[in-house]
Design a protein around this nucleic acid. Structure first.
Lengths: 247, 247
DNA sequence: TGTACATCAGTGAACGCGCGTTCACTGATGTAC
DNA sequence: TGTACATCAGTGAACGCGCGTTCACTGATGTAC
């Protein structure tokens, strides 16, 4: 988007191209700050322009419209979360499947707490009047890919529990993700992975959106202990547990 | 709010009072329609007034401001969901704990699919610039109360699995809900209940917000089969399962 | 039962705000010969 | 290397929109004597 079509991937050379890249980056940075402060619904091209000392119409040289800016921020958020998760999970020894899963969970939660509005942008209720384009699919799948990879690795290690048989209708319902996994992973494992996926995001969303108010004590320590416990329970359901959940 | 302070609870008697009650209801109904169509962020007092053939300032006779209208709609949504869940769950024989749980899950999902914007209003990302008052706490707890009651009933039936011991820090983290339950329910069971709660809403939110796109096949049959399977798995973790999850 | 006064519903104009987007224009930067 | 032309960044005004909320006012309904 910030490269002229047909250009090779190398850095911009002329002063104009350098300036264009820099200002585009500044617009994105400022938009990110506004998003973090006021949320996606309140994101305004005029306010971004104002902050950059530009006249509002000038940003149209860099961004076609508000929706495109939102799309950039969404991709940005998916990539930010995806990168954080991949780094955390990647630092764990490949055969410690439970720890890889827990690292993934905690990385998601930590990132979400640090970037609540960006989290809401990608995992909250859809922004009214905005339709996500296909460009977001790749970045959006980074976290699920990590989760599925843990399952697949566990399976190929031979240490996975025998996959349970699954009702044909249920197996058929997950055909899309089955195909994505190359048909190699038994449906039971995929279903476990997806259960962990929605359990993880359910827990994070509940905490972030205030539904633990009057339920779990406030404060980092209590909230982290609670979350860790619940994710260990989810791991049990994955066949990743090391005996009992309580520790 | 629609009763003069100090009035007894009986129905309005004078023509004025009857008219006031009716018009307040009409405003709420129209607001509900707008909410369902355009979402909470776009809810506008002017638009509601327009639809009712009133001048915009006239609604201020009935509703103090936009936030108050949102609060009414939030309470309304919690009550709508709570009522639907209580009805479904209440129709199941008291000792069929698994079926009571599954009825709860399916009732939540069915209601959410029928009322996506209302669901988003209460379980999606918070409406920007709106702070929920304390009035919503009661209606908001109807669903969790149903879930916890199933757990408590199961426990007192003697058919519950032996509650596992729970780390002291984790037990302390759920002090608020423990106190709410009168300290009678072992922490392990409360934690299981809450895991089911966030697992349930995680699954519904994922489906509603489009995160099953390219993952689970489109269509009611596939989606329902998938959801049912995953909720049975969650029930397993609750100690509610009847052996194996696959069916 | 009839009249005088108080209460309330609804009007219409206004204030002040912010938004996305377009368009004709100026002046600076880059390019081709 | 120097000049003529093309490209692009940024300006400023404007269009058209919608919003929440306030306020002085009219006219209808209810209440007290």
């Amino acid at each position: 988007m910030r490269q002229t079509a047909g250009m090779p991937i190398d850095a911009p050379r002329t002063a104009r191209e350098r300036a264009r890249a820099e200002i585009t980056a500044e617009i994105l940075d400022t938009a990110r700050i506004h998003l973090a402060r006021d949320g996606a619904a309140a994101l305004s091209l005029r306010a971004v322009a104002r902050d950059l000392g530009m006249v509002s119409s000038a940003v149209y040289r860099y961004v076609p419209n508000r929706d495109a800016l939102l799309t950039m921020l969404i991709i940005d958020a998916y990539d930010g979360l995806g990168g954080a998760v991949e780094t955390s999970e990647g630092a764990v020894a490949r055969t410690d499947y439970l720890d890889r899963f827990l690292a993934t969970c905690h990385a998601v939660r930590t990132w979400a707490i640090a970037h609540p509005q960006e989290y809401a942008l990608i995992y909250g209720s859809p922004v009214p009047g905005y339709a996500a384009p296909e460009d977001t699919i790749g970045p959006a799948s980074r976290v699920p890919v990590v989760l599925i990879t843990i399952i697949v690795d566990l399976q190929s290690s031979g240490r996975a529990p025998r996959p349970a048989p699954v009702d044909a209708g249920v197996a058929a319902s997950i055909a899309p993700i089955s195909d994505f996994a190359g048909g190699q992973v038994p449906p039971d494992l995929l279903l476990r992975g997806m259960a962990s996926w929605s359990g993880l995001f359910g827990a994070v969303s509940f905490e972030l959106y205030g539904h633990l108010h009057n339920v779990v004590a406030e404060g980092t320590a209590a909230r982290t202990a609670y979350f860790d416990h619940q994710m260990r329970r989810v791991a049990e359901g994955l066949g990743l547990g090391s005996g009992t959940v309580a520790r």
